[in-house]
Nucleic acid binder design. Structure first.
Length: 460
RNA sequence: GGCUGGGUGGCAGAGUGGUCAUGCAGCGGAUUGCAAAUCCGUCUACGCCGGUUCGAUUCCGACCCUAGCCUCCA
């Protein structure tokens, strides 16, 4: 039985989909005005893992992740660059897709863009106005009236009085209440704008998710995910909009992933302590980043530094070592290891425990090899690959992990030639020459390993 | 101030009312020409103070420290 920690109730709950064997899931995606950073990588990878596991668990999953391609930051950045905002967003959507592909993130079922869904947003805003949940402000902006929605604050555990007592809410004369949020923003001269019953303007941020999720998944669906910082106000406002508009519960299970931190502080643009995915890919392999993310629980904070990434490299090397040079085989069906693997993922996606099971399998494989039980080794390796694949790990060939691209440094053929020379020396028990060649290669980052009369090599 | 979370061995990071996380590192052994890899064994833990209990790192309460949200933010 799958259990999910539901942020709406702050506890783990049995997961029961609205429709048997089908899951409808929505995740808040990126605002595309810059390169994605590691925090975005975490959302991508975490929910990609969720998506993969739910499918592997036999569900038919419809996964929607939106792209916010119009908002204040986009307009500002486009103006700074003196380019149309559409050129800016097209460029960063492309970059985002490249980053996702590098990280082994599967494409969602749908990837709607805000600018393609303005009519659905207008319809929703109209309904909210008709039903008395929204009003047109003195500045022609349309606002949501939070006082009209009884459940406001239920996701984030806040009460309106507490929020009003806060000192950080900007005073805005156009609003009835400082907590009211904008649904439609009237355009200033020169800004991108769409026509609406309230004049030219653009949608507020929150309305896009409400409108697009409803369009693609229906007015009520199973899982809604996003970064922890979106819980308030973004997700709270989505609930207010959708439930007021549709008159029933919006989302059954809310999932929020924890942050990536730098020196125990949140990674963010304002603190200027962020690393883009492509920065990190200069130093670490994509699979190492993926391992780093999945080796902690998705709700925990995750501190970024070279140590856990180096650790990921060592850990993946151990796993790929177990897989190396084994023939293809059928994975055993419904093994004890697989059952435990599924059980820990059923427990709110406990990926660190799942990874621990992968290491048990690696040890089993190594034992079988030692016993010369090649069939059992190959079958266990197939199981290891199968289970790791649910996490999006160990999907490449072991040899390519060890030998890399070979673009830099010694060519594969040159390495092989030196290994042949060394083998000759070894048959003559010329250990000095043998060790000299091994040291020479080591100096160029090539590690030789002699086993059972064979010499294998890898780049380190 | 209000609301959420955390504090685990040298590091990272799970978990549990009473034998084992896991990976890296360390130590001992096997194997190896020597290594590497691998296998076997092994040492370092549960912020602090009380309470419940036969027994708490795990439950409860106080305290200390810490992160996040309350403003755009994954």
């Amino acid at each position: 039985m799958l259990k999910i920690y539901n942020s709406l109730h702050n506890r783990k709950q049995d997961f029961i989909p609205l429709e048997a064997n089908k899951i409808r899931m929505y995740v808040c995606g990126m605002t595309v005005y810059d390169y994605c950073h590691l925090g975005h990588a975490r959302v991508m990878v975490v929910f990609d893992m969720v998506y993969r596991y739910l499918k592997a668990a036999g569900y038919e999953v419809t996964y929607v992740r939106n792209i916010t391609d119009i908002d204040d930051k986009i307009i500002k950045r486009a103006n700074e660059n003196a380019e149309p905002f559409t050129a800016l967003t097209a460029r960063f959507i492309q970059a985002m897709h490249e980053d996702e592909q590098a990280l082994g993130v599967l494409s969602p079922t749908h990837e709607p863009r805000a600018t393609d869904n303005i009519p659905a947003m207008l319809a929703m805003i109209s309904t909210l106005i008709e039903q008395g949940y929204a009003y047109v402000g003195s500045n022609r902006d349309v606002y949501y009236d939070v006082s009209k929605f009884e459940g406001y604050g239920k996701l984030s555990g806040r009460r309106l009085e507490d929020l009003r007592a806060g000192e950080r809410i900007a005073i805005d004369e156009a609003k009835h209440d400082p907590l009211d949020f904008v649904l439609w923003k009237a355009a200033k001269a020169g800004e991108p704008a769409w026509d609406s019953p309230w004049g030219l303007g653009r949608p507020g941020w929150h309305i896009e998710c409400s409108a697009m999720s409803s369009s693609l998944l229906g007015t009520q669906f199973d899982i809604h995910g996003g970064g922890h910082d979106l819980k308030f106000p973004h997700h709270e406002n989505e609930i207010a909009q959708s439930e007021a508009c549709n008159g029933h519960q919006y989302v059954n299970y809310w999932m929020h992933n924890g942050f990536i931190q730098i020196n125990d502080e949140k990674m963010s643009k304002s603190l200027n302590n962020f690393f883009t995915i492509r920065d990190v890919l200069q130093v670490y392999k994509a699979e190492e980043i993926r391992y780093f993310i999945l080796n902690s629980h998705y709700r925990s904070p995750l501190n970024y530094s070279h140590e856990p990434l180096d650790n990921a490299r060592a850990a993946l090397t151990r796993l790929y070592t177990a897989l190396r040079d084994l023939p293809n085989a059928e994975a055993p069906v419904n093994s004890e290891a697989e059952q435990r693997f599924r059980a820990v993922l059923d427990d709110d996606f406990n990926t660190p425990e799942a990874i621990a099971i992968l290491f048990e399998l690696a040890r089993d494989i190594n034992r079988f090899r030692r016993e010369q039980n090649d069939l059992a080794a190959a079958e266990t390796a197939a199981l290891l690959k199968k289970l790791a694949g649910i996490l999006g790990l160990l999907e490449r060939e072991a040899e390519s992990w060890f030998k890399g691209s070979g673009i830099e440094g010694l060519a594969d053929a040159a390495i092989e030639a030196l290994i042949q020379q060394r083998l000759l020396a070894r048959t003559q028990k010329n250990w000095a020459e043998s060790d000299r060649i091994r040291d020479e290669l080591k100096a160029q980052g090539i590690l030789l390993e002699d086993q059972a009369g064979l010499t294998t090599w890898r780049r380190v």
